[in-house]
Amino acid sequence: MSSSRLPSALARAADAVRRGPHSTPPDGQRRTRRLAIGDPQADFTRFLAILDHQGLLGPDGWLRPEVQLLSVGDHFDWGRPAEREEAATSALHLVAWMAAHPADQAVLLLGNHDLGRVGELAGFTDARFAAAQAEADGIYRGEDTDEARERDFLTRYPELPNVELAARDFGNFREVQRDWVAYLLRAGRFRVAHAAAEHLLVLHAGVTREDLRVVGLPESHQAHAPTVADALNQALATAVAHWKEGPFSMPGLHQPGSATYGEGRGIFYHRPSLLPQDAAHRAATPRRRFDPHRLPPGLTQVVGHTRDKRTRELLAMPREGYRDGVLRYLVTDGTTLQYSLGTPPPTGPGEAVLIFTDGGMRESPVEAFELFDLNGHQEGQG
């Protein structure tokens, strides 16, 4: 493949950033190749190289006209402390490049790192965040973090739930990123979910039966992806319409963290867990862990957010043999559960499916990183 496609795309992205926050409206063109890509928390050049390896980039630096690309969320925050400035700039170019495509060609779905810009970080300036991060860097030591120093830190930065968020989780924050996220939320460009087929839903971290009851969907409607996507996206639109200032939230679905509330909770933080110590966290929405047996039967959800190693840990499976870059799936009938690499076999109306696309883009070799083919998915019998 010609290497000229990547410089063209980088130039397009730089132009999009210079224009400032904007969104290109849908153009209604039919897309014959539809793919979902897992969390793009990696250098923008690597993201483009993956697309180019898949034959998705045109010589003009845009997605080919026949391609529809769904990004499952988490466009910010990666790398070591020495890479923060590079990562912050790279992520902004990625979001701007996606937003410059027609809205029905490049679909931007929300992740918890995207929402962090208008959540926990809603009131920070670059200078205040830099000061907080410098202090957090001196305190954060994983499980060995000094609790007394952390409590003192939180008295001065009560918007944050812990020092880890400033030092690591949301470590690449810049005000300009928040400007873009806020604009794309108000423009309706950032969405919660996308229905790719009658029973195929794409979103960041998955929803359970209880989450869908929050948006008024009885179980009889929870296998129909267009109905689910409409309900979740309408909940987002309603929350955005009521959001004037301060941290953005969605009642029952998303609550950002703070020193008093603790870590953020809701459907953008979701991870399936069978660990006994997570039982309390699975009890009620919004939450950070969910029981995978409570996934809506008959619905296949394409998600990101959780890599193979972490998924195995939370499902109480051996972590040996985990792999980056590859697609994975979980199937449950509400009682039994299967987790494996690859894509799922055909399923029936009583089975729920998660397809995981977060392959650790930064660590995976470009040629090994798999995208999910939305056209190739065989609908179940739901």
Rank of each mutant, 00 (worst) to 15 (best):
G171W: 13
A167H: 03
R186T: 11
A182Y: 07
R149E: 13
A167T: 07
R149N: 00
R191Y: 02
L160A: 07
Y183H: 15
G142P: 08
R186W: 08
F190M: 14
A166Q: 03
D169G: 12
I139C: 00
R141E: 13
G171V: 04
A148I: 06
N162P: 02
L185M: 12
D169F: 14
T155H: 13
R189T: 15
N172L: 00
V176F: 05
T155K: 14
E143T: 09
R178I: 12
E164A: 15
E159C: 06
V181I: 15
A187D: 12
L160M: 06
E159G: 01
G142C: 03
E143H: 11
A187M: 05
R178A: 13
Y157T: 05
L184K: 12
A182T: 15
R168I: 14
V176P: 07
V163N: 05
F173Y: 15
V163D: 05
Y157Q: 02
Y183C: 11
F170Q: 13
R156V: 05
D169I: 14
T145Q: 10
T145P: 03
D144K: 10
N172P: 00
R168K: 15
L160S: 02
L160D: 04
R191S: 14
R191Q: 15
A182K: 09
D179H: 13
D144L: 11
R189L: 03
Y157N: 06
